[in-house]
């Protein structure tokens, strides 16, 4: 089991607030790991560090390595060629599609990093690339929407487009930041199932931040829990016992406590259909 993601001593502060403190862990190829913790615990910030959207503190010893390349080291992003960067993909809570472009074009954007520069800049996609994109849309179940504008879609559909974009990207590692937090329960379940299939069938490594423990238990075998920016737990999801969770979520907001109860909100539809 060789690590394809390794994080060492990551520190990040926003002003005087320490968002991450000495966070470190390793993830092996093919794992599906959840990053869990109450809101404000730093899990989204941590995930942004892994793809290089956020830099660690300058005076820290932080080091992030993904797929044999340094993403950042001591608060400096390490540049990389497009072919290297596209090996890791990212899915956002707010989808981050380009609303005025068609669904198909949004998916094709996932292929930009693999195209010759002049074709990428002029947006000339070949028929083969279009077929790739259509196949990805078929896989996430919305091929019928290919020619609609992205901003006409529902949240669940948008998140599927974002996943199709990561599929076309052929990312070996997919980071998903609260992918279901803005979705209704049914869409949330479908999106989690798609991610699980990508992990199982394609062997992609997936790191997903969640704040509902019941969802994490259902889809992920390993959990990394953060509390107030520090690593609180790293191990099998079963190891997150009720007493540990109690401690993890103490002082957290009321909504966090509620969504942790298995019988509430997310949980009911998830179990009913599964």
């Amino acid at each position: 089991m060789t690590a394809i993601i390794s994080v060492e001593r990551l520190d990040k502060s926003f002003g005087n607030h320490a968002a991450l403190r000495e966070v470190g862990f390793e993830i092996a190829s093919g794992e599906m790991v959840t990053l869990i913790g109450p809101s404000g615990s730093g899990k989204s910030t941590l995930l942004r560090h892994l793809i290089g959207l956020t830099r660690a503190d300058r005076q820290s010893h932080g080091h992030v390595r993904v797929l044999d390349r340094d993403v950042q080291r001591q608060g400096r992003l390490v540049g990389a060629r497009r072919e290297q960067r596209r090996r890791a993909g990212y899915i956002f809570q707010q989808f981050n599609l380009v609303g005025r472009l068609s669904v198909l074009t949004n998916v094709l954007i996932g292929h930009l990093g693999a195209m010759p520069r002049w074709r990428a800049l002029t947006g000339r996609f070949t028929q083969h690339e279009r077929d790739l994109a259509l196949r990805a849309l078929e896989r996430v179940g919305i091929v019928g929407l290919a020619h609609q504008r992205a901003n006409t879609l529902s949240g669940g559909q948008m998140q599927r487009v974002a996943i199709a974009r990561a599929l076309v990207q052929e990312a070996e590692v997919i980071f998903a930041d609260e992918p279901i937090a803005s979705l209704d329960p049914r869409s949330a379940r479908e999106v989690m199932e798609i991610l699980q299939r990508i992990n199982r069938e394609d062997g992609r490594t997936i790191v997903v931040t969640l704040h509902q423990v019941d969802v994490a238990r259902r889809y992920c075998r390993r959990a990394i829990a953060l509390k107030q920016g520090r690593l609180y737990y790293d191990g099998p999801i079963e190891g997150l016992t009720d007493s540990r969770l109690q401690a993890l979520y103490e002082n957290a907001g009321l909504d966090e406590l509620e969504s942790r109860q298995p019988d509430h909100r997310m949980a009911a539809p998830l179990h009913a259909v599964g």
């Binding site: 959207l53 497009r82 990212y90 380009v98 954007i109 800049l121």
Partner: peptide, 17 residues
């Protein structure tokens, strides 16, 4: 950011995003 994380370059980010 959505375009950036696909591995596309800065110019593609501006043109598409």
């Amino acid at each position: 950011e959505g375009v950036r994380v696909t591995g596309a370059g800065r110019l593609e980010e501006i043109i598409f995003g």
